[in-house]
Amino acid sequence: MNGIHDIGGKHGFGPVVVEQNEPYFHEEWESRMLAMMIACFGAGVFNVDQFRRPIETMKPGHYLLSSYYEKWLCTVEQNCIDVGIVTREEVDARHKQLMKEKMA
């Protein structure tokens, strides 16, 4: 698809910003996301192509602003829904519950 991910040759993104001494993970959830991705891949939830597809269909604004691990969440979640392991409603409900618990 001619998606927002296809950015080779585009102008206007500004300089390449290099973070010195970049840690492997900036937050713990990023490491969980990496591991969950590989575990789901290993379990047969998706292959490399099925993994990429939902990232490319993210809304352009979301795609450009989100970190790579947030993109991974989108595709792992979508693939788990596609193969019938979870439903969007279940993830939404659990997410809301955890946010509520955090506020309490």
Partner: peptide
């Protein structure tokens, strides 16, 4: 949430939500 044209709010908690669900269902 994940389809909106903005960042996912409290994204770390959504990762946690998904991980806990996948664990409960025996997928990971």
């Amino acid at each position: 949430l994940a389809q909106e044209n903005v960042l996912i709010p409290d994204v770390g908690l959504r990762v946690k939500a998904l991980e806990s669900l996948l664990a409960e269902k025996g997928a990971i």
